[in-house]
Design a protein around this nucleic acid. Sequence first.
DNA 1: AACACGGGGTG
DNA 2: CACCCAGTGTT
Length: 362
Amino acid sequence: MMEGDEERALAHTLTAWFERHRRDLPWRRTRDPYAIWVSEIMLQQTRVDTVIPYYQRFLGRFPDVASLASAPLDHVLQHWQGLGYYRRARQLHAAAEQVVADHGGVFPNTVEGLRALSGVGPYTAGAIASIAFDAPAPLVDGNVARVLSRRFGIWDDIKQGRTQKELWRIAGDLVRQAAPPGAFNQALMELGATVCTPRSPKCEQCPLAADCVARAEDAVDRLPVVGAKKAPRTVRLVAAVVTHERTQRVLLAQRHADGLFGGLWEPPMVEGDDLETTRGQLGRLGAPPSVELREVGEVTHLLTHRRLDVTVARAHTARAHRLRKPSEPYVQLRWTDPAEVALSTLARRVLETADQPQERLF
DNA sequence: AACACGGGGTG
DNA sequence: CACCCAGTGTT
């Protein structure tokens, strides 16, 4: 058999399947590299259904790379609030400036050129190169890793560097025999997203079932192999929601650009669980002294690597005190309307909890 | 190689 | 509740 025949057959089968079963997604209605880039950044570790409304709003407000590059970062963050991994928004903005400044507003069309953009790693570079420019560039994401590990019976931990290297090699062998490469890469991911799912895969609908090693060995539910994950650490916090009585503005703090919820605003939070200590800590943060905090509720927020148990305390003040420069993790304090700034989902939930009317216990 | 980084859908 | 998602950058 000629070298590459098996790859060519698989690629053809999968691409043909994709033509019949592809979902109609907003970013599949364009060949604009900018729009495809935005979608790929949003889709990092984020599901299609979550991304769609964000993508629509974002493209409406920032229709091209120039409009994104010239927009204030705060506006970009506001359109990102709730999506998570906020560093992506900052890097997207920085990369837009890169494209305008270094490439005259024209997107790079090679993997190497794309890789140089902030926030574009090996996956995203392969995605843009293949989907927007039809370059025969491979890509491996969670879906592709799952499909390939099952189809070829790969029993090594897919998180390991060596296994990843092997997966990228296979993906490369396949995409080089595919036409067009962009459709093939999307087909691979689409299969993983809709048929070759992590649990309860629909093997009876799978175009690759006949040649699937995992299927043949009745091992579909044991592949891919993924190493054990660490349990998230629990952190106890107190959030202080201080409202200015006349204006109803709230004391909000902006987080440092690096780290958790980078660049977003929230009611000041300090580690710990007792209100007395919190009051002192707030002073250290530059907040008004001696506000009377009253506990009004509890919010539990789950992240991949953290569990945040937040006690929500509320206070009112008659005067909007002059604010000092806060200490870490905050960079600035402001009396503001929460609707006017970018909030994390945690901050939103804290504010909602503080807004609930207090019920008497009896 | 390990870790930080959000949020939500799914079984 | 556990799992994991169209990953990247830092340490």
